[in-house]
Simulated scan of single mutants.
Amino acid sequence: MILAMLSIILLSILVAGCTSESLSGVYLLSLSYTNSVPPATVPMDQDPTIINPGLQTVFAAIATNNGSSSPAPLALEVRVGYMGMCLSRSSGGWFCSTTAASLASYVRDTGSSIVNRGGSGDPLNLIHVGDAFKGGVVFMALIIVSMVFALFCIALMATFPGWHQEEDDEGSEREVKPFPSESVSRLACASSMVSAALAFVSAFWQHLSSAAAGTMVGGLTYGAATAHTGVSAIVLGWMGTSLILLVVAGLVLMILSFKVLRQIMD
């Protein structure tokens, strides 16, 4: 029961990532500007797969607000979670919201991403890209259902009988603990299996989609923007999955043990 509850807590923190400044470190994907386009390993004009080698220069110019004469580093960073998004403040800290529109309004109103420059605070629309990733790729329903099944498993395990005192045939008291109902044990085990399966699929999909999106962002902006997967979110996802898998293993071992003991008693 403790392992299942810890799993629920970890998955809850994961789902609530980027909904407040205190949870800004729990994110699936981070998008930011590189402020300089690194040279390609193979020059673009020599790569046979590139049709238009001038795009790298175009994206570099856009990312620096069309080559402003007073270049200032773009400090904007967007972090995307399951339920919210966070934006870096120029003064430090994070501005977090459950909607991308709030982040865009903050940039328009404060100009927090630019210093002494009249360009756009988000020239490559990283806020929009993060919102598209959150709305089109991120899927938290499986995690929610997984936590529901884990709670159901905990409720079933809470019905297992505990230790109590009984009098034996000789009149002396002894502590006994009856076996739990076999049907309830199997139902709790099935619930934990469903929870573990859904948590595993969610963690795998989260890891895969974040890594793929990060690679695509770097490629499509030709190095003008960069993306990183959130280590904390990956750890929380896989740790929550591992804990519920331990619950499954424990319940299976318990059911098999009770079966052997019943056979011995018979």
Rank of each mutant, 00 (worst) to 15 (best):
L3W: 09
M5Q: 15
I8T: 04
I9Y: 15
L11Y: 09
A16T: 06
S32I: 07
Y33D: 00
N35P: 05
V37F: 10
T41R: 10
M44Q: 12
D45N: 12
T49E: 11
Q56L: 04
V58W: 12
V58S: 10
N65H: 09
N66M: 10
L74D: 02
E77W: 03
V80P: 00
M85T: 05
C86D: 03
L87T: 02
R89F: 06
S91M: 12
W94N: 10
F95G: 05
A101K: 15
L103G: 03
A104K: 15
T110R: 11
S112K: 04
G119A: 09
P123Y: 07
P123E: 05
L126C: 10
I144G: 06
S146F: 02
L151V: 11
F152D: 00
A158G: 11
W163F: 13
W163Q: 15
Q165Y: 08
E167Q: 14
S172C: 07
F179I: 00
R186M: 02
S192I: 00
M193E: 05
A196Q: 02
L198T: 02
L198V: 04
A203F: 08
S209Q: 12
G218K: 12
A224S: 15
A227T: 02
T229F: 04
G230C: 02
S232I: 11
V235H: 08
V235T: 12
W238Q: 08
L243I: 07
L243G: 00
I244S: 04
L245G: 08
L246S: 06
V252M: 08
M254G: 01
I264Y: 14
